[in-house]
């Protein structure tokens, strides 16, 4: 860890999410695509920020660098107070487990595991004690309203229930940052509202810094703050009254 990282650690209390002048480019044939262009963003603990934008605007790239899956070409990223830029792959895996929770599009659950096992898997990856993992997993399923369906597999759950399991799984390792990728793409409008409302509630309850990308502006309004992404750049989406 560099001196700059240590300074950042003290600056971000428990640690939210901070991106400083992040740039990411992809090779595209003979040329290159600028996926993220000098992006700076801070999401505080207990705050949910929604990023809206068209397909190809850079939303997924933003999640990829924030979640330590991609290393940016330049800039700095701090997750839960820890710098993730320039960190070896193995340490980034550990960091993803310890500090980042992911809620994926379409829930992305493992078909062969029950709801409870989906959560326990996170404990196994982190080598947490089995009994404590089970207790915590059951508590989180209770929190998202699925205690009665802990033994069901994804095929036996509705789309909304699967996404609730995905949210509970993302909370298993007490993440500092929650990264949410189009969480409502497979849901009807009412269920989509329920899911985003649950995300807001969990963000506030667990004091997590949540960054959600979505193309649905009406759902983005439920977040504490909305940012527009266009051609790899972030722009304020306007005051709440304008949304």
């Amino acid at each position: 860890m560099t001196a700059r990282d240590v300074t950042a650690d003290t600056m971000t209390d428990r640690g939210g999410l901070r991106l400083e002048q992040v740039c990411l480019r992809y090779a595209d044939g003979d040329g290159e695509v600028v996926a993220l262009d000098d992006v700076s963003l801070t999401v505080d603990p207990g705050e949910m920020v929604a990023v809206v934008g068209a397909s190809g605007s850079g939303k997924s790239s933003l999640l990829a660098v924030a979640g330590a899956m991609r290393q940016p070409d330049s800039g700095h990223i701090y997750v839960g107070g820890t710098a993730v830029t320039g960190v070896p792959a193995k340490q980034r895996s550990t960091l993803r487990h310890d500090r980042v929770g992911f809620v994926f599009q379409g829930s992305n659950l493992l078909a062969s595991l029950t709801a409870l096992e989906q959560l326990e898997l996170v404990g196994r990856i982190g080598r947490a004690p089995r009994a404590a993992t089970r207790t915590k997993a059951l508590a989180l399923l209770e929190e998202v309203g699925l205690a009665a369906k802990a033994g069901r597999r994804p095929g036996q759950l509705s789309g909304g229930e699967r996404q609730r399991v995905g949210i509970a799984r993302a909370l298993m390792a007490d993440p500092a940052v929650l990264l949410v990728d189009e969480p409502t793409s497979a849901l009807d409008h009412q269920r989509a509202i329920d899911i985003v409302s649950l995300l807001v509630e969990e963000t506030h309850r667990h004091r997590i810094a949540t960054l959600m990308v979505t193309h649905d502006r009406s759902l983005a309004r439920l977040a504490d703050r909305v940012i527009e992404m266009r051609d790899g750049r972030l722009e304020p989406a306007g005051a709440p009254s304008e949304r």
Binding site: S93, H97, V100, F102, F104, I125
Partner: peptide, 16 residues
């Protein structure tokens, strides 16, 4: 492949 990608996204190392 998708399951392995998911496990890695959840923080599982290559070794694991």
């Amino acid at each position: 492949k998708a399951d392995i990608g998911l496990l890695k996204a959840l923080g599982a190392s290559n070794g694991l």
